[in-house]
């Protein structure tokens, strides 16, 4: 393990979302598809890096909105990827644009996924489920021990 590397908790998700409405929809969607996930919400990009640096355990996945006042998703993406401590944290951009240029920009900045945020809630839930399932499955395949989510119920 890297010097200073923090433990990743694959059962935990940090949601950075300034819209209260979207945050509630994310909460509703993930609590029905992945009831065991622990969700934490913040409403702005500022302070996220410091809070994570101060924490012993990092979320397995950060779901971030692009359009936020102050430090936006692009800014946060860059700030997180600039830190080697967070290299194993999955960064998923969740936004309402499908513009190819926006996707390319996020991927170049180190996002692991770029997910379109649909208006229809059932589709919204399906898309979130798809992204979380994908990364849980991929991480489980990439790191054989411990299996993803196996420690979810022990804390």
């Amino acid at each position: 393990m890297l010097e200073g590397a923090r433990r990743i908790d694959p059962g935990s998700v940090l949601v950075v979302e300034d819209s209260q409405e979207d945050a509630e929809a994310i909460q509703r969607a993930l609590s029905s598809t992945h009831p065991a996930l622990r969700l934490e919400f913040v409403h702005r990009g500022e302070g996220v890096v410091d809070a994570l640096l101060a924490s012993d355990v990092l979320p397995g996945l950060v779901l971030l909105d692009l359009n936020m006042p102050g430090m936006d998703g692009h800014g946060l993406l860059g700030a997180l990827r600039a830190r080697p401590e967070f290299r194993d944290v999955t960064l998923v951009v969740f936004t309402s644009s499908t513009a190819p240029a926006e996707v390319d920009r996020c991927y170049a900045a180190g996002a692991d996924s770029y997910i379109y945020k649909p208006v229809n809630f059932t589709l919204f839930r399906t898309v979130l489920k798809g992204a979380v399932d994908y990364w849980q499955q991929s991480r489980a395949q990439a790191v054989p021990e411990p299996p993803e989510g196996s420690d979810g119920s022990t804390k």
């Binding site: 499908t98 190819p100 770029y114 649909p118 399906t126 798809g130 399932d133």
Partner: peptide, 17 residues
């Protein structure tokens, strides 16, 4: 091409990976 890129983006992961 731009439209198809957008549709492909919309489909992932709504329809497939």
């Amino acid at each position: 091409e731009e439209t198809l890129s957008r549709v492909a983006r919309l489909a992932v992961p709504a329809v497939a990976e």
